[in-house]
Write a protein that binds this DNA or RNA. Structure first.
Lengths: 148, 148
DNA sequence: GTTCCATTGTTGCATAGTGCAACATGGAGC
DNA sequence: GCTCCATGTTGCACTATGCAACAATGGAAC
């Protein structure tokens, strides 16, 4: 392996380690704090909010979850009054049941996101505007890469 | 809120969303693939490897886990022959039991890390050396920020 | 329309990972 | 020695998850 390759490997290893650290910290943090929504609830609510009229099966494939898991989670959110079936005149699916977020769900999601974003904001304290933009752009590029 | 603040907020929101996406994808991926170690096992093994002679309690505080959880996880790893108690002449703690990684544990960890790093490597395909280094540096800076 | 099938959703059972609280253990300090 | 505190273990409960079997329902073919 050449000098170039070795250097590249080191950088890649570093990126992995850093992302791993972010991941673990997020998990630990979500255990400590008392969020208005669990990670799963927030993810699902955000997805339904961004995809009004989506069905449980759409959520399952989007998150690589089993249909049964989504079924239960969605019911839990419905019991909390955060999502409802149907009620979305624009996006009626051929089959299955269209889901949408209630006003209360949207409010809860907003508060949940605000809390988590606040933690990110604190971490980015002291970053200049260009540094921030570059970082966000790099993350977007990283995420945009297709899965092999 | 001024133009500057709004722009900054947008960038911060973007960083949060991207990290959230990374997180969710990592969770989904770890469900799909058949890794030699679960996320938890890999984390613990890596920690013990980097901190030979550490005790269960050290792991618990490092990962914000309950002592009981760590106790069970460590026992599971011990049953698999991946970690052992004591056997580390250099780092004997005053109390508790020193943990260290066995040769098999080190091997398993290495393979597990290699698999996960490979996924990251693929995502970084096409990035130039400087782009890579900048990204790694930004992630490090992000992680280095102290928790408030 | 009726029948059949594929998609979608639900439910019973099992598993991993986790917390809390109670308990056990073993060094440290007196 | 005795006491205390840090450490570890165990019983119980709960969440999130998957799999497999089942139920329901819309489309398609006839």
């Amino acid at each position: 392996m050449g000098q170039q390759d070795k250097s590249r490997d080191t950088a890649i290893g570093s990126v992995y380690d850093q992302i791993d650290a972010i991941y673990r910290r997020a998990v630990a943090r979500s255990r400590r704090i008392n969020a208005p929504l669990s990670q799963v609830e927030q993810s699902l609510l955000a997805f339904i909010g961004s995809n009004p009229g989506c069905r449980a099966t759409d959520i399952a494939s989007a998150f690589s979850l089993n249909r049964s898991t989504v079924s239960r989670q969605v019911h839990a959110l419905a019991d909390l009054g955060l999502v409802v079936e149907g009620d979305d005149g624009d996006h009626q699916p051929r089959r299955g049941r269209a889901l949408s977020v209630t006003d209360e769900g949207a409010d809860r999601l907003k508060r949940s996101l605000a809390i988590h974003r606040e933690a990110v904001r604190n971490r980015l304290d002291g970053w200049s505007e260009p540094e921030l933009k570059d970082f966000a752009a790099a993350l977007e590029r990283f995420n945009a890469a297709k899965d092999e």
